[in-house]
């Protein structure tokens, strides 16, 4: 059976899946591009009302978690089990921290009566409604991916602890890592487009 040992093939499958994720978010980026060109000034207004501090903090958190996942693969390859478990735990905690930040951010906005279908948005400038509509849809979908990614990382953590993920056979961890990096990649684009439009 060639298949059993073909880790490169398994990773290829994961990459193909990542393409579908990229295009999934791509549909939303199409909307973003069009509406940015239609409502440039509203988007700048909207961007200024988002907290750059929170956005930047979340970017750093995801970058660190991405590093941690990459390091955990190195650790597994070097048969440093404890270190790899530690790295994975750090990555999961980063995910949690990210979601907490998101919770406060969203809560703050919802408190200010800014959420899909709220009166402030429905009767305000149309461009403002679109900006925050996209903001909630895109960060919401991204948040969902964070949750899925954290679940996958937890699975990888358990399997590493049980030594089902080893230096010889760690394609599962690699694929989970690829997924997590993709979630990071998407945030790398969401961050400037929403928080830093001038």
């Amino acid at each position: 059976m060639r298949r059993a040992a073909d880790h490169q093939g398994t990773r290829l499958g994961m990459w193909l899946f990542l393409y579908t994720e990229i295009v999934l978010f791509g549909g939303l980026f199409v909307l973003y591009a069009v509406y940015l060109s239609t409502y440039s000034s509203d988007f700048i207004e909207g961007g200024k009302s988002l907290s750059r501090l929170f956005g930047a903090a979340n970017t750093l958190i995801l970058l660190i978690s991405s590093f941690a996942v990459a390091a955990s693969i190195t650790a597994v390859q070097k048969t440093q089990k404890k270190r790899s478990l530690l790295c994975l735990a750090v990555a999961i905690c980063c995910g949690l921290l990210f979601l907490m930040n998101k919770y406060f951010e969203w809560g703050h906005k919802i408190h200010a009566d800014i959420y899909p279908g709220s009166e402030t948005l429905a009767y305000g400038a149309p461009g403002r409604n679109i900006f925050f509509g996209l903001y909630y849809v895109m960060t919401g979908l991204h948040g969902l991916h964070i949750v899925i990614g954290m679940t996958l990382l937890s699975v990888a953590l358990v399997l590493t602890a049980r030594e089902r993920v080893t230096a010889e056979n760690h394609v599962l961890l690699e694929n989970v890592g690829l997924y997590w990096h993709l979630v990071d990649l998407i945030w790398i684009f969401i961050f400037p487009l929403f928080y830093l439009v001038l």
């Binding site: 909307l31 509406y35 899909p116 279908g117 948005l121 429905a122 461009g127 403002r128 509509g133 909630y136």
Partner: peptide, 19 residues
């Protein structure tokens, strides 16, 4: 009711057809 395709809320229904 986000309104991404609803002209009354600033959306563009033709974009739905594009997508």
């Amino acid at each position: 009711g986000v309104g991404l395709f609803d002209p009354a809320k600033g959306g563009d229904p033709i974009l739905y057809q594009h997508l």
